[in-house]
Amino acid sequence: MERSRIAVAGASGLIGGALVQSLAADGHEVIRLVRRAPRAEGEVRWDPERKYVDTAGLAGCDAVVNLAGANVGSRRWTEAYKAKLRSGRVLGTAALAEAMAAMEPEARPRVFVNGSAIGYYGETGERTVDESAPPGEGFLPSLVVEWEGAAAPAREAGVRTVFPRTGLVVARHGGAWGRLFPLFKAGVGGRMGDGRQYWSFVSLHDEVAAIRHLIDRDDLSGPFNVTAPHPLTNREITEAMGRVLHRPTLFAVPAPVLRAVLGEMAGDVLGSQRVLPKRLLESGFTFVFPEIEGAIRAAAE
């Protein structure tokens, strides 16, 4: 990728922070979208709830990457929190898409990479799914459909629009794995429920590399599953965590306990999603950590 000017919303999050660091290390100019008055060079104001974006700050950007939104797994899904999850993603996406559509054609970014999630597919059991599969049923699938749909103004204005549907990111800090690592290191990690549910994971390194691949390739648009090629069951992942961290994995959290503690969100933990990155592989992307043990070791270093 030639030196580019790239705007990132959600730059302080797990994936956004790693992406910004990777881009800056390679000499790209990163513009951070912030929800307050800019305090430093390279910051641009936006207010997703009010659908406001300082479009002057986006002028000259080659790409806009939207990774903003409240953490899906950070707390119990109350009706208020589900509304926050929905508004943060849908309104934020709409704000950026409408802002780009309103810009003069010559000033518009050439690509809009709008973060998405494999929650689109809902429960898949042992069945493998790729990008050709329809959305599932429930809160997360409906959220993702609305989330991706909010990007329509940018796409209709001629901005190449891509949706990286991300799986469970293997990282030491942040996301689901950020809470698993301390438990396993303490020797109290174990399978969740019966452990037969599939978890579609991706290393943080490969997540960032995939987003950069989608930015760089002018021939790619639409949804791309960003998950390692070999999804595994929760039991298999639990065993791999134990091997890599040299800890026992004797504990298990029964499904009823998870439902009591997590409420509706337990369905996401106990649900099975066997998702394949078909389009990403077809585009020539190569995973550095295609297997779970390598992904865990990379995160643990």
Rank of each mutant, 00 (worst) to 15 (best):
V208I: 15
A209L: 01
A209R: 07
A210L: 15
I211H: 09
I211M: 09
I211Q: 11
R212Y: 00
R212N: 08
R212D: 04
R212W: 01
L214A: 01
I215A: 10
I215T: 11
R217C: 14
R217F: 08
D218L: 13
L220W: 06
L220P: 03
L220T: 05
S221T: 14
S221D: 15
S221N: 13
S221R: 13
G222L: 02
G222N: 02
P223R: 12
P223K: 12
P223G: 05
F224T: 10
F224D: 06
N225K: 03
N225Y: 04
V226D: 07
T227K: 02
P229I: 07
H230R: 14
P231T: 05
T233G: 12
T233E: 07
T233M: 09
N234M: 15
N234C: 08
R235V: 11
R235G: 03
E236V: 10
E236R: 13
I237S: 02
I237R: 02
T238H: 03
T238M: 02
E239R: 15
E239V: 13
A240H: 06
M241P: 13
M241N: 06
V244H: 04
H246C: 12
H246D: 13
P248C: 00
T249L: 10
L250K: 09
A252G: 13
A252V: 08
V253N: 06
A255G: 11
A255E: 15
A255I: 09
P256W: 13
P256S: 05
V257M: 15
L258I: 00
L258G: 05
A260F: 11
A260E: 08
A260S: 14
A260K: 12
A260Q: 13
V261D: 08
V261W: 01
V261E: 08
G263M: 02
E264F: 01
E264A: 12
M265P: 06
M265W: 03
M265R: 11
D268V: 11
D268F: 02
V269I: 15
V269Q: 01
V269T: 10
V269H: 03
L270R: 04
G271P: 01
S272E: 10
S272P: 06
Q273V: 03
Q273C: 04
Q273S: 09
V275H: 07
V275P: 11
L276P: 00
P277N: 05
K278G: 10
K278Q: 11
K278N: 12
K278F: 01
K278H: 12
R279K: 13
L280M: 11
L280C: 09
E282Y: 00
S283C: 14
S283T: 12
G284A: 08
G284C: 08
G284H: 06
F285W: 05
F285Y: 15
F285D: 02
T286Y: 02
T286W: 01
T286D: 00
T286K: 15
V288L: 14
V288Y: 03
V288H: 11
F289A: 09
F289P: 10
P290S: 02
E291I: 00
E293S: 10
E293Q: 00
E293V: 11
G294D: 10
I296A: 04
I296G: 07
I296T: 10
A298E: 14
A298K: 12
